[in-house]
Design a protein around this nucleic acid. Structure first.
Lengths: 202, 202, 202, 202
DNA sequence: GATGAATGAGTTTTCATTCAT
DNA sequence: CATGAATGAAAACTCATTCAT
């Protein structure tokens, strides 16, 4: 059955390359510039072919979203390898830095995620909504694992989920301010870390 | 001149009613479902009539945005009347509560604002971009004035703008979690206040 | 019945002022920029009022057309006063010059006439078509009268109508070339006169 | 590669058939009646399909224009084959005849060209303006080549460009008179030739 | 599997004309 | 007479999706 296997593999690769193409389009033209035509062109495929791999544009967008999230989560996990267990401040600082860097390096994706999550609330798009919930859960899980690894999980005043939200909130807000709000300074990771840890730790 | 006055008044009312209609559409169909057709239908006017009151769809959206923001800022200012100067904790708690309540009462508007602000990043929409920046400035200004009123402005470890962002971030994140992220608990304003103040105060 | 008379006079004046306003709009924005709104604004009247004086936009345009043509014909007639009978070359030169000057001074009207006459051929607009025919007849009549006045009418090789067309054709072509065709030289009235007279005279 | 070739051919044919459809619409409804809807209907295609072949309505119009002009210029060139070098009168007569016949066979196109060239003067339509200038240049070039072929180029009193304009003017004026001005006689090509040559030759 | 031509409902916007006041 | 708010049909253009090849 090696033929079948090869086919499956090729199919996966094609999917991936379409997702990459979509990403590229978003990077170049923004979320509202994303059209199947452009994706097809970028992927060097026909419009019709896209629909062999994805049910609809909506679907494609969701998968792009997941691909990106996957990358961010990977990066967060990778940081764990590099920070020593026990050093909470250094650890959290690294965590915040990787998030800030990730989004800064891909500003368009940040916007895109905002859009995706926002669009997700349409009652008509229950499917997408699940995406948002699931995404949220995974990010929290990853961050909480991080806290556990650092050994500070028990030292927070509030439950891990809420603590995770607090941290994410502070970070995301500064990113939003930077990208949309005219905040022109560099984001000061030390400050963010300080505010968060003071607020969250016992 | 009562005729002229009456006309002016009616005109203002019409404008307002169109804005309300647009809001209603957003409430029912989400931001992406907002079309001039639907607004016209909801406002019980012809498509053309909309353009007697608003230059373009973009313009209409911006004005809806500002109407909402105006309401929120009004509410924040109103809180000042009700909290005693000096009681920082109580004051911040009230501030956070009013923001949480406002957004909770109009969930769709929350999404809508996200979209409006996000859409603003499209290079093509310089006009809207100004809106986002301006909005951001105004919110900060209002919050900072609040801090001043409470008398805690000087007691923060970081500059007022950054402090304002930290607070907003924490609040917005919990709202996002509630609306899109499957966070099902009531938002605990006391907790938010506590995290923020511990993090921000010297 | 002086009241009635006054009314009639006022009505005529209003009509005239609307026509002038329309003209002004054409001068500023070109034929395709002509809208009832703009005419009303320029005439300092309401949109509705225009329709008290003119049945339709089409009608208004036709009347503007006639007003212009009337002016041109007046100018041509005026030239007769200034050239001595008998001097054919000088006379024709003056005639051509006045036409060239008129159109050059009002380039937009030239375009406008082209448009009006062209649009006139729509089978649906028999009314306008009559305008074109009538206009044509009048211009020829005026020119032929001019020839008669100069005393050269009998010296042409071909009938006066055809001779008139030949002259008009040469002039109009150079104007067209100047306005649309990239012909950048000054129009050489002497040359036009020379070509025409050599071609037309016995 | 026969599939690819076939596709290319079909594409060309489709384009052509859309252009023909547009022409047909102009023929039936005049320039101002030309809408994409009608073209689509006439071409038995959907509105969207038109945009697969032409970038915009403006573009489509320009191409129709060029298609027609191409045909006229072809016909003029073809006449060269049929007239003997050296016989100026016969040659010019043939030239004028082919122009008269062409426009007479396609009266609506005459109007259309007037419109296209006129519309070109709108400051907003720089793109079309180029078309008018370019068109003008090509027609002159073709006519001047014709003169050269006949060997009479040096015998004109005025430069070739001006001479060409004079001829075109006389011809176009009679066509205009015929189409819009109520001139009901047959156009007498001999007369036009005579007037032109007497006027133009030394 | 892959293509890409075709669809058609949808979008925003304009403007001559009407009519209640 | 005069107003100007309202209409509504029409315009150009877009794009996710389908389907014959």
């Amino acid at each position: 059955m090696s033929t079948k296997e090869r086919r499956e593999r090729e199919k996966r690769q094609r999917r991936e390359s379409i997702l990459r193409a979509a990403l590229e389009v978003i990077r170049e033209e923004g979320y509202s510039g994303l059209s199947i035509d452009k994706v097809a062109e970028k992927a060097e495929l026909s419009k019709g072919a896209i629909y062999l791999y994805f049910e609809s544009k909506e679907n494609l967008i969701i998968e792009v979203f997941w691909m990106l999230m996957g990358e961010l989560l990977e990066r967060i996990k990778a940081v764990i390898q590099q920070v020593p267990q026990g050093d909470v401040e250094k650890g959290v600082k690294s965590l915040i830095k990787v998030i800030v860097d990730f989004y800064c390096s891909q500003q368009k994706f940040f916007v895109f995620m905002h859009h995706t999550v926002s669009a997700a609330s349409d009652e008509t798009l229950k499917g997408i909504n699940k995406t948002a919930v699931e995404y949220n859960r995974k990010v929290n899980e990853t961050i909480i694992n991080f806290f556990k690894y650092l050994g500070c999980e028990k030292e927070f005043r509030y439950p891990p989920v809420e603590t995770s939200y607090a941290m994410r909130g502070i970070v995301i807000q500064f990113l939003t301010a930077k990208f949309f709000g005219g905040y022109e300074k560099e984001i000061d990771v030390d400050m963010l870390t300080d505010i968060f840890l003071r607020g969250a730790l016992k």
